[in-house]
Design a protein around this nucleic acid. Sequence first.
DNA 1: CCCATTGAAAGACAAGCTGTCTCGCGAAAT
DNA 2: ATTTCGCGAGACAGCTTGTCTTTCAATGGG
Lengths: 212, 212
Amino acid sequence: MTSRRYEQRLRAQSAEQTRRRILDAMYDQLPKIPSVDAVARQAGVARSTVYLVFGSRAGLFDALLRDVSERGGFADLVRAVRDPDPLTHLRGAILANTRIYGRQRDVLVALRAEAAALEGALERTEQGRLGGLEHLASRLAEHDLLAVPKDVAVDVLWMLTGFEAFEALRTGRGLSVDAAAARLLATAERTLLRVPSPEGARNEQSSRDVSA
Amino acid sequence: MTSRRYEQRLRAQSAEQTRRRILDAMYDQLPKIPSVDAVARQAGVARSTVYLVFGSRAGLFDALLRDVSERGGFADLVRAVRDPDPLTHLRGAILANTRIYGRQRDVLVALRAEAAALEGALERTEQGRLGGLEHLASRLAEHDLLAVPKDVAVDVLWMLTGFEAFEALRTGRGLSVDAAAARLLATAERTLLRVPSPEGARNEQSSRDVSA
DNA sequence: CCCATTGAAAGACAAGCTGTCTCGCGAAAT
DNA sequence: ATTTCGCGAGACAGCTTGTCTTTCAATGGG
């Protein structure tokens, strides 16, 4: 009875399909937070199947979080980080980051509401952001562009690149995605960078006209 | 049968007591978000009594929110707002605001987690903050202290004085309440105020040493 | 002192949710 | 042909919110 090994490609493939169907069903119901039952019904799948595939309600949201991370829109962010000029890095990263938030907003709001059930998963994701910010702060420091200590720069960047800051401007103040990006960028530049040199003046200008 | 008017002071008084017992029972269980049943048991009260007094789970959290607002710690904030010097107003308001968040943190985290059920109640509370910020921005503008348009200043202040910004620094970056206040203040001053004049330099200094 | 009034307990009930488990079909792999 | 295994179907336990009815006991007007 416990003998034959199987390697069922087709079966695994269709399993992947049901997995996708379930996740897509979740996206469909956002930003309202659906019950496991509602997701299963929308996906045309038995509720027990959802538990079979994702383990629990929390597992379902965890998978959604990973899915969002993989789906990218991160290309722009990566490009900005790779730029040789640290100022372009700063500007491009904040802009790309904010636009990602703008696009994924429904998912992120739902995930935040479910934050209690997710615990570690969210932290793990945020860890990547922290690493990126430390890198950015180091680069700015190396080029002697910082007007504040490096760790303060990391703190401020952390606050400004979080989803909550974006959401406060977007929903709380009714700004567009690009207007929110402009406020965040202006705040970062004026707070972190040395002097309102010709460089600084230009930045301020460029962020102002987007927001106009 | 429908005749006599009653004016039962003692009864009304004991009703107020049960009301308080229930709210206190909630405070006891924070920051974990308790079920109505758990609150009732902790308060030594029937679950149906909670519904009798507060109407619903949402009503319970709504009452908690009002209770927090009334409990104050707002004296410092009011004093800062009344100061004739708009710069003192700015600094005092951010500091007092942040300290209030620090003190009420457990409640605010719980309320945020329950935000979906509260809807309007939170907005109403935030409305007051917005009004205060507009006033502050106007004062700064009148004294010609702003380096950015007034509406931009309101947006930035809104973002920096929200609970989320505080929480990002406090929990996300592990800062103390005063260190968080220093970051917020430095960000606000450098972003909003004209030139790093002698005035500006002094501010930067004072906020730096708190954070050290 | 009597008893209408009313705050509050007790608890039944409906409905929705998560999570677990069992049973059985039918398609895929060997 | 026979073994696996993905998945649907559904029962079950337990927790939750919310509603409603019944009962108890104190309060206070007359």
